[in-house]
């Protein structure tokens, strides 16, 4: 599998890098078969004009059987990163090519820069050790908040995002459209009518917070989606859910129980007080516990629906991926977390 992919990449880069000779692919890695998209990381080595070159690239390839494929526009991911990487100094990968020719790798894909650094699974033993040490040292937690604040302070209109991405209208524009999306997902992936989810959706409608303002939101900003090297955060990854929205959605995501489980530290890294204070100071935005709780419920509802979509996809015979079956079986546990947040 990886040999075939490496050969395909070699031919592809030979066609893209003009004048390149003796091209070879090295250090090829496929981090995991992603839930939604697949990723490949590698170095390209070549010679041209008598000089030797090496550059790291990463590829994100669309997985047609991936979760909630029908809700996603793959080109938007590429476009979003293109605009973002050209308009900020955040550690995000620059993008190079977007390809729709499925004969190359078996699906649409885009090529981006490989960023330096190591990723950690936060709930693994190794990840928890790394993050605890980073917490005690203090530099990475500070940088974690600074990068989020910087993203939220980016002038998205000036950067050109509003040409291709929806800008919510009015203080409830964002949350109204998100709730509508959740209801559509609930109905599409229905396993059985679910009183917990119906309660949660009604609760979300009845308790909507007004956005203080809008910004670029990552929607998956957590320690597991960052790269680290020499006590620095060197990359922010996984922008597939990014959009213009309420920055409190990202703040609540950092606080979400599913990102810390039983750890007293947010994302296994941050003290809650430090996070709120630093973020407020840097952005001028008020962090209201009630709003944070609201968006925590919102995210947990989203997680249930993702789990539900996985189970439905397996139950309908649309996938052989056993991870989807496992998610389907875990559905009551995910609903249990929604119930807990609502005070059941």
């Amino acid at each position: 599998m990886s040999e075939t992919t490496k050969q395909a990449l070699k031919s592809y880069f030979e066609s893209k890098l003009e004048g390149a000779v003796n091209l070879r692919i090295s250090d090829f890695k496929q981090p995991s078969a992603g839930w939604s998209d697949e990723a490949f990381i590698f170095n390209v080595n070549w010679e041209s004009d008598g000089e030797t070159h090496q550059k790291g690239f990463a590829i994100r390839k669309q997985n047609k059987g991936g979760l909630m494929r029908e809700n996603k526009n793959f080109y938007n991911q590429y476009n979003f990163l293109d605009i973002l990487s050209k308009n900020c100094d955040l550690p995000v990968p620059g993008v190079h090519w977007y390809e729709t020719d499925e004969s190359i790798l078996g699906g649409s894909f885009f090529v981006m820069d490989k960023l330096e650094g190591a990723a950690y699974v936060p709930w693994s033993k190794e990840g928890q050790q790394f993050l605890k040490q980073a917490h005690d040292d203090g530099h990475i937690p500070q940088q974690f908040v600074e990068l989020l604040a910087k993203l939220h302070l980016l002038d998205y209109q000036e950067a050109g995002f509003t040409k291709d991405f929806t800008e919510p209208v009015g203080p409830y524009g964002y949350i109204d459209s998100k709730i509508k999306g959740l209801e559509e997902m609930y109905n599409r992936y229905l396993i059985s009518p679910d009183p917990v989810m119906v309660d949660a959706l009604e609760w979300l409608k009845a308790n909507k917070p007004a956005a203080q303002r809008y910004s670029i939101v990552h929607n998956d900003y957590r320690t597991g989606n960052l790269l680290y090297k020499n006590n620095e955060i060197t990359g922010i990854l996984d922008w597939e859910a990014a959009e213009i929205g309420d920055p409190m959605a990202d703040v609540a995501y950092v606080c979400a129980k599913s990102n810390r489980m039983d750890s007293p530290l947010l994302c296994y890294l941050l003290d809650r007080d430090m996070f709120y204070e630093t973020y407020s100071k840097l952005t001028g935005l008020q962090v209201d516990e009630k709003v944070v709780h609201y968006y925590e419920v919102f995210h947990q509802v989203r997680f249930v629906l993702i789990s539900q979509s996985a189970g439905t996809s397996f139950a309908k015979g649309q996938t052989q991926d056993l991870r989807m079956a496992r998610q389907g079986y875990r559905w009551p546990l995910m609903r249990g977390m929604v119930a807990e947040l609502l005070g059941y």
């Binding site: 009183p195 917990v196 309660d199 079986y329 875990r330 009551p332 546990l333 609903r335 249990g336 119930a339 609502l342 005070g343 059941y344």
Partner: peptide, 19 residues
Amino acid sequence: ITPLREKVREQLNIEMSLV
């Protein structure tokens, strides 16, 4: 709504015990 949630919780506990 609050008392109804208690009843739904009982149902959820049955489902959760099987996961």
